[in-house]
């Protein structure tokens, strides 16, 4: 009951969607399933939020090390959730001014927009930007041009980086037109269009085959890892 029915649901949902591609009357089923999937994914966010609350409230209640930061997390979570769900400070839409809730929850100037623009965006953007330092540092320590493969990787990265800056084209601007293909900006384009495309195609074909075989294993019940452990 606890494992057989989920297995049946998995197989049935997947096989029906695969077969729906082959019949005209079921063409829209895939799109419909995608909407259902989106709905369940949104509910999964609630699950994530609930889990976050559970973990941090537990930490605060136990006065574990760093519980003060959990209080900040909980406050940030609660404030964002309340102002977002209540559309606090959002004006009605111009098409329906009599409906107080008709405005967009992302309205510019609203508290929810403020939290996105002045907290969420700078924090996440800076976190990603910081990776520039760590990538450079890791590359400096790990990259050594000790064989052909490493030379190719380093050389390509160097040309691509140079080609996307103002310095790159300036460095090779003296080359005559007969050698225009060797100018950094043109070399970058050729690498991207030929060698990079070839490698990417092989990777994409590999990924597609991998996904197809994994999907088949899941649908046929060979792979049951998604059901987790526990009694059957």
């Amino acid at each position: 009951m606890k494992r057989t029915i989920p297995l049946l649901i998995t197989g049935l949902a997947g096989i029906v969607l695969v077969l729906s591609y082959f019949f005209p009357f079921s063409e829209g089923w895939g799109e419909e399933a995608a909407i259902w999937f989106d709905v369940l994914a949104s509910v999964a966010f609630v699950l994530g939020g609930g889990n976050l609350l559970k973990i941090h409230l537990q930490k605060v209640s136990d006065r574990r090390a760093g519980w003060g930061y959990s209080v900040i997390t909980l406050l940030a979570f609660a404030i964002t959730l309340v102002v977002g769900l209540s559309k606090w400070g959002v004006h009605p839409s111009e098409q329906f001014p009599a409906y107080a809730w008709s405005g967009s929850y992302r309205e510019i100037g609203s508290p929810f927009w403020w939290l996105y623009e002045y907290a969420f965006k700078p924090l996440t953007a800076t976190m990603f930007a910081m990776l520039a330092f760590y990538v450079a540092s890791a590359a400096f320590r790990a990259f050594r041009a000790k064989n052909t493969e490493a030379i190719l990787l380093l050389g390509t990265a160097f040309i691509i980086l140079l080609g996307r800056t103002a310095a790159g084209p300036a460095l090779t601007s003296w080359l005559p037109d007969s050698l225009a293909g060797l100018k950094i900006e043109n070399l970058t384009v050729t690498i991207m269009k030929v060698a990079n495309t070839a490698g990417n195609r092989a990777i994409m074909i590999g990924i597609a085959l991998g996904i197809a075989s994994t999907s088949l294993k899941v649908l046929l019940g060979v792979d049951r890892s998604h059901l987790g452990g526990g009694e059957g």
């Binding site: 994914a41 949104s42 509910v43 966010f45 609630v46 994530g48 939020g49 976050l52 930061y69 959990s70 900040i72 997390t73 909980l74 406050l75 940030a76 979570f77 609660a78 404030i79 964002t80 959730l81 977002g84 769900l85 929850y105 929810f112 939290l115 996105y116 907290a119 969420f120 924090l123 996440t124 976190m127």
Partner: peptide, 16 residues
């Protein structure tokens, strides 16, 4: 701590 709290709630609001 702020980014964890804000982003969890942000995606919940967007989903809703």
């Amino acid at each position: 701590a702020v980014v964890v709290g804000v982003s969890a709630a942000y995606w919940m609001v967007v989903g809703f």
